[in-house]
């Protein structure tokens, strides 16, 4: 038996082979199969990818830079979309009250919306998963304290907590400082209102995993608790977390839009989709419906697509539904 050779091969197999292995497994796996079987999910994925890509490459995709004051002309204000009489071929979807092209502003707005969305979901996930792991694995007093905090927070609507934190930061921080760090304030506000869901899910799974024998085996070997949590328990509780994260991305984008619509989120100087909707709202009845309708429709489509993806992921990863 060529045992020595096998060992050598085992050593030589590097990261690249593992990656190729993983990619091959993915495309042969159940997940990819169920993905290709569902046209709705594929369309959702394409929409999401288009949004994310255009947000990332906004300067390349957008016809104009809405923040470049030199390219904005007040004379161009409130031009309707090109297919309506009076439309300007330069502005596909018309312009807003300051003469900024709606399409360009939307692309940059989606950038801010998705940026805040991703960052706050990531923040909520790290916080929630961390606290949930501690709670579920350690149990006892730590568990009781973390879960009671979570219970109390659950009694407040998420948007209320986000409003509270945002309002607090405006009062505490000097005005110009808040103008600079609004992104982080928003991420903190939205993230803090979502961590409970992750914490509860992870806590439940961690309690199940903790009693399994592979965790006890690690304890007998003498692995420190923190390492057991990160290396053994965490990978085994991440499945549901990814599903929640996908669905939460849509909720986070909406929350940001709501906050911005209420005028407490993103400052008007760097408009997100929510800010655009709010600004356009003032012109809705004066006939310039396009200022608010297009960002609104974009937001609705984005959220719907991400939600559908999340739902599909939840079902596809659920072994009972296979």
């Amino acid at each position: 038996m060529a045992v020595g050779e096998n060992q050598q091969a085992g050593v030589r197999r590097g990261f690249a082979t593992h990656l190729a292995d993983g990619v091959r497994r993915f495309f042969h796996g159940d997940l990819w199969h169920s993905f290709t079987r569902s046209p709705v999910v594929m369309v959702s994925a394409v929409i999401t990818v288009v949004f994310v890509a255009s947000a990332i490459f906004a300067p390349l995709v957008a016809p104009y830079d809405p923040f470049d004051l030199a390219s904005i002309d007040l004379l161009d204000s409130e031009i309707p979309p090109i297919w309506i009489e009076g439309g300007d071929p330069r502005f596909l979807l018309g312009t807003d009250d300051q003469g900024r092209g709606i399409l360009s502003t939307m692309i940059y707005g989606a950038r801010i919306s998705l940026g805040v969305g991703f960052a706050s979901v990531l923040f909520a996930m790290v916080l929630g998963v961390g606290l949930g792991l501690l709670s579920g694995y350690l149990g006892g007093t730590v568990d009781a304290i973390i879960m009671r905090i979570a219970d109390v927070q659950l009694t407040f609507p998420a948007i209320l907590i986000a409003l509270l934190i945002d309002g607090l930061s405006r009062t505490v921080l000097p005005r110009d400082l808040h103008g600079e760090i609004w992104f982080y304030v928003l991420v903190l506000a939205i993230g803090l209102s979502f961590w409970v869901q992750y914490a509860r899910t992870v806590r439940g799974s961690a309690m199940v995993e903790r009693s399994k024998e592979y965790v006890q085996a690690a304890q007998v070997i003498g692995i420190p608790p923190l390492l057991i949590m990160l290396r053994h328990v965490l990978p085994n509780v991440m499945g549901p977390v990814l599903v929640i994260a996908t669905i939460n991305l849509a909720i986070a984008v909406i929350t940001e839009a709501t906050l911005s619509f209420l005028g407490v989120g993103v400052p008007p100087t760097s408009p997100s989709l929510g800010t655009l909707i709010r600004v356009g709202n003032d012109f809705l009845f004066s006939g310039s419906w396009w200022i608010t309708i297009f960002p609104g429709a974009a937001l609705a489509i984005l959220v719907l697509a991400v939600n559908l993806l999340g739902d599909w992921l939840r079902d596809a990863l659920n072994p009972k539904l296979r």
């Binding site: 024998e213 592979y214 006890q216 085996a217 007998v220 070997i221 003498g222 053994h232 085994n236």
Partner: peptide
Amino acid sequence: RKRLQMIFQDPYASLN
């Protein structure tokens, strides 16, 4: 710790 080790009952649960 390294001088004493344990073998568990359920081979389906004792390996990560």
